[in-house]
Write a protein that binds this DNA or RNA. Sequence first.
DNA 1: ATACTCGTACGATACTCATCGTAGTACGGC
DNA 2: GCCGTACTACGATGAGTATCGTACGAGTAT
Lengths: 118, 118
Amino acid sequence: MSTPATPRLLEHPAPGEIRLELVLHALSDAVRLRIVSELAAAETELSCSHFVLPVTKSTTTHHFRVLREAGVIRQDYRGTAKLNGLRRTDLDALFPGLLDTVLAAAEAQSARLEPAGA
Amino acid sequence: MSTPATPRLLEHPAPGEIRLELVLHALSDAVRLRIVSELAAAETELSCSHFVLPVTKSTTTHHFRVLREAGVIRQDYRGTAKLNGLRRTDLDALFPGLLDTVLAAAEAQSARLEPAGA
DNA sequence: ATACTCGTACGATACTCATCGTAGTACGGC
DNA sequence: GCCGTACTACGATGAGTATCGTACGAGTAT
């Protein structure tokens, strides 16, 4: 009982507090765009460690926080892992089509820059 | 003849050089978002001095350059004025719907934050 | 309990950027 | 020619950010 079973809740902006500029800024980074793309493709919640990113863990934490504080993703603790999910419903309500359009644009650019580089 | 009648051409990225991250970053600023919105509404080229922005002229020049270097707008000298136009065709070809979606999102947010503040 | 894994916090660093003021260049009209 | 307008270039500055390393806390497995 010394540790009061802290739920370790993370702060998220309410839907009404989500600002377009912050969302666009959060998406204007290659690493974060990749995180969001994978998250959208998975259509489920993913742990941070699932992602293989070209940066250290510290930097990864930073990028996830930027996404969370912009209102793009939701983060919840699930035991030892932290699950990340897209706030698709909130974003679609505020900015209809924005997420899908950006994701399609990201995919189009990837296909353009890496034609058959698989 | 000391001055060889420099046409004062400005550098623009070719359509193939436009990067999504840079476009999103260019749009993730309130001042620049406002410039792009007005430009889209006007559907014609506007001079820099047409815009009434809450920053100095130096800063205005900076923002226009960011937009130009990201490939969002095209700038051409027309006598003493510099005309700015949206690169709608190029952007729509690369990232279909992105510009319209972002502009709609910006308008939605403005309407939400300034209900009847006209 | 011990040890291991996952993720955070903190401090440091180097870079970018938004902002400004001042001085300067290009163009057009007098 | 001269002056005014439109915009730029340069330098400075303060804030933000992307990056890292190390140390720590919380949870799970042994």
